[in-house]
């Protein structure tokens, strides 16, 4: 599917966020070789230079690494992937609790509702 970008934020940052999610969700598996910059740019429909910048940022975060001449790979470091996943989860949890609070629902009730209304597969029963 074609990603939708928000023109109000730097495109490269949005790419970093998307690829980070692809890594923690396992769409890109640990140790997997990534497609070339140009291929990635084409699938995401962005400028190859922007993709290059995003990958450089992910490399800074150590989520990917470059093997000289062979291209770029997802990190083998499972602990790092778990850590990043937890950080993302933290953000989502904050969002959930904040939006529950905004409609007047306390923390305890929010937790209860999560189990009650969330359904077993984690998807709303409604």
């Amino acid at each position: 599917m074609e990603p939708i970008f928000d023109n109000e934020r730097p495109i490269y940052i949005q790419l970093v966020e998307m690829i980070r999610i692809d890594i923690v969700s396992g769409k890109f598996e640990k140790g997997q070789r990534l497609p070339s910059v140009r291929e990635l740019a084409l699938t995401m429909k962005v400028n190859p230079n922007t993709m290059q910048k995003a990958l450089a940022e992910l490399e800074n975060e150590k989520l990917i690494y470059t093997e000289r001449t062979n291209g770029k790979y997802v990190t083998e470091d499972e602990a790092l992937i778990e850590k990043v996943k937890k950080e993302l989860a933290q953000e989502k949890v904050n969002q959930y609790l904040r939006s529950m609070k905004s409609i007047g629902i306390s923390y305890q009730t929010a937790v209860k509702y999560l189990q009650e209304l969330g359904g077993e597969d984690g998807i709303s029963k409604v």
Partner: peptide, 27 residues
């Protein structure tokens, strides 16, 4: 087209008023 641009040049009344990398300007 803005999502595919590296750089932007604003031109007005025959003059260049701004040149910048697109993402830098957004930020």
């Amino acid at each position: 087209i803005e999502r595919i641009l590296d750089e932007v040049i604003f031109i007005d009344q025959g003059e260049i008023v701004l040149t910048s990398p697109a993402d830098e300007l957004r930020q």
